[in-house]
Simulated assay, not measured.
Amino acid sequence: MSKYVNFLLLTTIVMLFGSSAMAAQSTIDVPVSKELMAKAREKVMSQAKTNAKGANEYVVGPGDILSVQVYGEGDMSTEEPAVAKKDLMEDSPRSSVGGVTVRMDGKISLKHVGDVDAVGFTLTQLADYLKIIFATVYDDPVVTVVLAQSNSQRYTVMGKVAKPGIFFLDYPINLVQVIARCGGFDQWANSEITVVRKDAGTEPFKNNTLQFDYDDFLKGKELEKNILIKAGDIVIVH
């Protein structure tokens, strides 16, 4: 009888510890419904209206490459490292990076949940949104979204510079630095520059344009006009 009791105890212990060691969360693909995506977006955006912290945060756009991680589960990308790209006037290509590319339809493809929205969210909002989406697969997932490469935000330089073109806005850059990035003025340029910005609305812009005189800048005048460039700006060198 004692041997039988010992056998039962041993079997129970093996079942308890063995089952916990073998436990795993489901990784079956669960296509996300349009209804769930709409509800998740509405919830995240409604929270954003009451939180001013994300006002100046980067907004995801088509072409951006994102790293999406679920804690304990790893990378959720379904893609190979992105093909290197380059500025239209840059000699060296941009580095290839791993991650998931935001498509022109505004979506990204992720493991287990398929195609989900991405465009229009800040990185924080997108992480909150994906937490709701991945909750259909994992218990209380911790989602991290990192901008691996910015490809959606660009500015244009036209006119009398050595290398006009369209450039990626990878880092903060002011107007004078933009001219330097383009190789400086060409031999026909004068010192006047116009910056056109959609919906500028505030000083030093007037009617969505800013007039900048490089000669005055060198004399220490109107230094506030050496503005930081924003995505979509058009710089015209006269």
Rank of each mutant, 00 (worst) to 15 (best):
E79C: 09
E79N: 14
E79R: 11
E80A: 13
P81H: 08
A82Q: 13
A82D: 13
A82R: 06
A84S: 15
K85T: 13
K85H: 08
D87S: 15
D87E: 15
L88P: 04
L88W: 01
M89W: 07
M89K: 10
D91I: 13
D91G: 04
S95H: 10
S95K: 15
S95E: 14
S95W: 09
S96Q: 08
V97C: 07
G98Q: 11
G99L: 11
G99Y: 01
V100F: 02
V100I: 14
V100D: 01
V102N: 01
R103V: 05
G106N: 03
G106Q: 09
K107H: 11
L110I: 14
L110S: 01
L110R: 07
K111Q: 13
H112K: 11
H112N: 09
V113E: 03
V113D: 06
V113G: 11
G114H: 03
G114M: 07
G114P: 12
D115G: 05
D117W: 00
D117Y: 02
A118T: 14
V119L: 02
V119P: 01
V119C: 07
F121A: 03
T122M: 02
T122E: 06
L123K: 10
T124L: 04
T124N: 12
Q125H: 05
L126K: 00
A127P: 04
A127M: 12
D128V: 00
D128F: 07
D128R: 10
Y129P: 12
K131S: 15
K131L: 09
I132Q: 05
I132Y: 09
I132T: 13
I133C: 07
F134N: 02
A135M: 11
A135F: 08
T136Y: 01
Y138K: 08
Y138G: 09
D139W: 00
D140M: 15
P141D: 09
V142N: 12
V143G: 15
T144L: 11
T144A: 15
T144P: 03
V146L: 10
V146W: 08
V146T: 15
V146F: 12
L147Q: 06
Q149K: 14
Q149F: 15
Q149G: 03
N151Y: 13
Q153S: 10
Q153V: 03
Y155H: 07
Y155E: 05
Y155S: 10
Y155D: 08
V157N: 06
G159R: 05
V161K: 02
A162S: 14
K163F: 02
P164L: 00
P164F: 08
G165F: 05
G165P: 03
F168D: 08
F168C: 04
L169E: 05
L169V: 03
Y171N: 13
I173W: 12
I173Y: 06
N174M: 11
Q177H: 14
Q177S: 12
Q177W: 15
V178L: 06
I179G: 00
G183S: 06
G183K: 03
G184W: 02
F185L: 13
Q187S: 12
A189Q: 09
N190E: 12
E192P: 00
T194L: 03
V195T: 05
V196H: 06
V196W: 02
K198V: 05
K198E: 12
K198A: 09
G201D: 10
F205A: 07
K206P: 03
K206C: 07
N207C: 06
N207W: 02
N207Q: 12
N207V: 10
N208D: 15
N208V: 01
